[in-house]
Amino acid sequence: MSQRGGFLKSTRRKERSGYWFVLPYVMFFLLFVAYPLVFSFVLIFHRWNIITPMEWIGLKNLSHLLSDPQFFRAMRNTFVFLFIHIPLEIVVALGFALLLNSKISFRGVFRALYFLPVVVSGVVVTILWQNLYSYDNGVLNTLFTRIGFPRIPWLIDSVFAMPSIAIMATWKNVGIYIVLFLVGLQNIPRDLYEAADLDGATGTKQFFHVTLPMLNPTIVLIVALSTIGGFSLFIEPYVLTGGGPMQSTMSGMLYIYNQAFYFGHMGYAATLGFVFAVIMLLVVVLQRKTIEAEAT
């Protein structure tokens, strides 16, 4: 009896402390998640530059967006970035992960070296690559002219600029994806390879029939993470190109930042943010569906 009473007391206590435990987060959620979401939604229908009163303009922001060539340009640029960045990253990361996933010396040293750019802030990477990419006296072009190659207009040609930024982003992030692939590789049960050996499947065949399908969840994760990263591309074009040449590196985030903080169009910037977010979620869902469909 007394035991039962104690139990009840303890459940009640548990319940009460449950509320106390989550209370700070609920407050945080209301202030920094719910309120901004609602506010952002309200902003879509307003014109506002922060300092003068808000003005209701109905769906004008949305209709302006549909006729705004810069919005479509930013959209296109994001897709160009993803189209180069994702495959490149998967190939490079998987390659290094396979190399590292065997008995070799200095494994930890290599892993740490590849990981270095991940930990370093994006600003550093961007400033560094600005100097690597410089047309006249950059490290890369100096190297190229040494070995008899022509100079490449990395950041000063509208065709090359976005791919250059995508290469840089790959260099920066590949470390984390190498580790993710390593985790994935080590989760593949040994006996699958043994069974494949019995069936007489060789290295390449094993890779395509055992390794790759088993890595599918990792690939889904990596594609989703880098898509989200691609949609948030900001500091790289902000420092390197200012969105040029010919708007070829104007990313969605940079365009939103310009609209909001240079031109003071908070309502329109919020609209852009919403639309970009919706498109991003659609893309992620779509990618996942495709990759999973291909795997089965």
Binding site: Y35, L37, L281
Partner: peptide, 17 residues
């Protein structure tokens, strides 16, 4: 659900806040 909200949406209202 919170994990799926991109920064693009909440950035400006958060700044205004």
């Amino acid at each position: 659900f919170t994990m799926m909200i991109p920064f693009q949406i909440t950035m400006i209202p958060q700044y205004i806040l």
